[in-house]
Nucleic acid binder design. Structure first.
Ligand SMILES: [Zn+2]
Ligand SMILES: [Zn+2]
Ligand SMILES: [Zn+2]
Ligand SMILES: [Zn+2]
Lengths: 147, 147
DNA sequence: ATGTTAAGTGATATTTATTATCATTTAATA
DNA sequence: TATTAAATGATAATAAATATCACTTAACAT
């Protein structure tokens, strides 16, 4: 597969615009986050890169995620159990569905979201700025395995 | 105001049923959680009780919350910033609206929730078991203060 | 190409919230 | 009132994320 990593290019451009250097370590982290296949954790990213980049430090992964968060280019999903997962592909808040077995995370399209937002504002008189909507369950492939 | 703390009584009964002792410390923690005014944090509970119970240990608050969680009598709300808040009044999952200024947390009634649950199941083929729906914004009183 | 320099990295120390440990105390029952 | 398992208080241990700092390097100018 070719290297037309559009989302990755956008992130790199944003980094340059803000005067940040493009190091090999940073580039490797961005590439993974731009895809965000399954919404990787810090450890996922670290392990993926370490295979062909043995000198990579865990601190560098943390630092770069922090930077990308501050630029609004990655969405952090902190879970109640303390684990964190990242979405650099779609960095604006959106609902997530998490499989509690295999830890897969998917992005559902929910038409009912707009209505719910309206209802929240109406019900509470809050000025809503952000949201975090997570549904936990078991994915179809884990369900099939079970039998 | 009188002491018809229905929710607190339910929690105490559940504790007795499961063979747990009712200590003064435990009772004080349960009383606060049963009301869950604004969804208190561990520190909130600790400070509230310490005023007229100076010997109270922070570990005891943690221990009792752990126990009440295991009995399904308190809902833990862990937030991305690492903070935790508790609802012992309505211990089943429900949406929350959080003021990012004063940290107040309220329970909105959202008719659109049922529809969204259906949509998630349909869209993703997951068997949904749990959810966590948070909306972040600024409450009306904080908005008023701002001007 | 080479040198310069501010930013980035790697290794490690620190921080902070929660859990574990353990000697002492106490609620529940007889 | 005595018995005993459970709970408490004080503190140690744990673990994930952040801070520190000496060394390295990407970006830019020459
Ligand atoms: Zn699964
Ligand atoms: Zn996502
Ligand atoms: Zn407020
Ligand atoms: Zn609540």
């Amino acid at each position: 597969m070719a290297d037309h990593n559009k989302r990755g290019d956008t992130i790199i451009r944003k980094l340059r615009e803000n005067g940040h250097k493009i190091t090999p370590q940073r580039l490797a982290i961005v590439k993974i986050l731009a895809v965000s296949d399954g919404h990787p954790s810090v450890e996922d990213i670290y392990e993926q890169i370490r295979t062909d980049f043995p000198t990579m430090s865990l601190a560098t992964v943390y630092r770069n995620i922090l930077l990308l968060k501050s630029l609004g280019e990655v969405l952090e999903l902190g879970f109640p159990d303390g684990s964190n997962r990242y979405d650099g592909n779609k960095p604006v808040p959106h609902p997530h569905v998490i499989c509690i077995r295999c830890k897969k995370i998917v992005d559902p399209v929910l038409d009912s979201l707009d209505e719910m937002k309206k209802e929240v504002a109406l019900e509470t008189d809050f000025k809503i700025l952000n949201h975090r909507l997570d549904f936990f369950g078991i994915c179809s492939s884990c369900m099939a395995e079970n039998k």
